[in-house]
């Protein structure tokens, strides 16, 4: 797990600072979506002016970073792998003193729900990108990239809607679920996804990296995107 997380962090950092080859029409890399600065190759929304000189990915990448860093599942991963607190079950902690999440900086993990709100908005944007990936200059088409983008959106939704904060906010916080039938159903649905939260966490993480890599390879001309377009 530690190796997987470390490998993703390395790739994501490299991809974020590349500031090139993140768009291959009609595919936009999820690391750069939504692309909101004026220096974007493909601008999703003009929210940031030309004063933004660095990679446009930096304007949004903090959202998924914060969401996953404060995620209850990934907290387990890095507490075990990097904090060594504990390195494994029934294996002694690496440090003699321990205060858990009762003090700074780890107490900040309690803001997870705010990152959930932002990640929810980001998942909507990613869904829009997935839909746009079927639009080939005004014609409907299906490319391998379209399917990769669609899978990316589905995995991101599965991860986001199974989030523990989401499960709490949609219904888990209620004492009487029977008095709120819709919220009860939402809570049940979120609970189903929540049971596989780790699986969706890893698959969505890996797929985001893979989607970026695919867009990058198509953009640089290393591979050609196989596609069928309806004219």
């Amino acid at each position: 797990m530690a190796m997987g997380l470390f490998a993703f962090i390395l790739y994501a950092t490299w991809a974020t600072f590349q500031n090139s080859h993140y768009y291959a029409a009609p595919y936009l890399s999820p690391f750069y979506s939504p692309c909101v600065s004026a220096n974007c190759t493909y601008q999703t929304a003009p929210l940031v002016g030309s004063w933004w000189k660095v990679s446009p990915a930096l304007a949004v990448v903090w959202i998924p970073l914060g969401f996953r860093t404060s995620c209850y599942y990934f907290r387990r991963v890095y507490y075990r792998s990097f904090w060594l607190s504990p390195p494994a079950c029934a294996v002694a902690d690496a440090r003699p003193r321990y205060s858990g999440e009762s003090r700074l900086p780890l107490i900040l993990n309690n803001v997870h729900r705010y990152f959930f709100y932002l990640a929810f908005a980001l998942a909507i944007v990613d869904s829009w990108d997935a839909v746009a990936a079927f639009d080939f200059s005004g014609h409907f088409g299906i490319g391998l990239g379209s399917l990769i983008m669609l899978t990316d959106a589905v995995l991101l939704w599965s991860y986001t809607l199974g989030c523990h904060s989401c499960r709490h906010l949609v219904g888990g916080r209620l004492k009487l679920l029977s008095a709120h039938r819709i919220r009860y159903r939402l809570w049940k649905g979120s609970s189903v996804l929540n049971r596989h939260h780790g699986l969706f966490g890893w698959t969505s993480l890996g797929w985001v990296g893979f989607t970026d890599l695919y867009v990058r390879l198509v953009s640089t001309g290393v591979i050609t995107d196989p596609r069928w377009v309806l004219h």
Binding site: R75, R76, R80, C89, G100, E101, S102, L106
Partner: peptide, 9 residues
Amino acid sequence: ISYCNITRC
């Protein structure tokens, strides 16, 4: 409860 760092053991 803040002492728990949810390592799931």
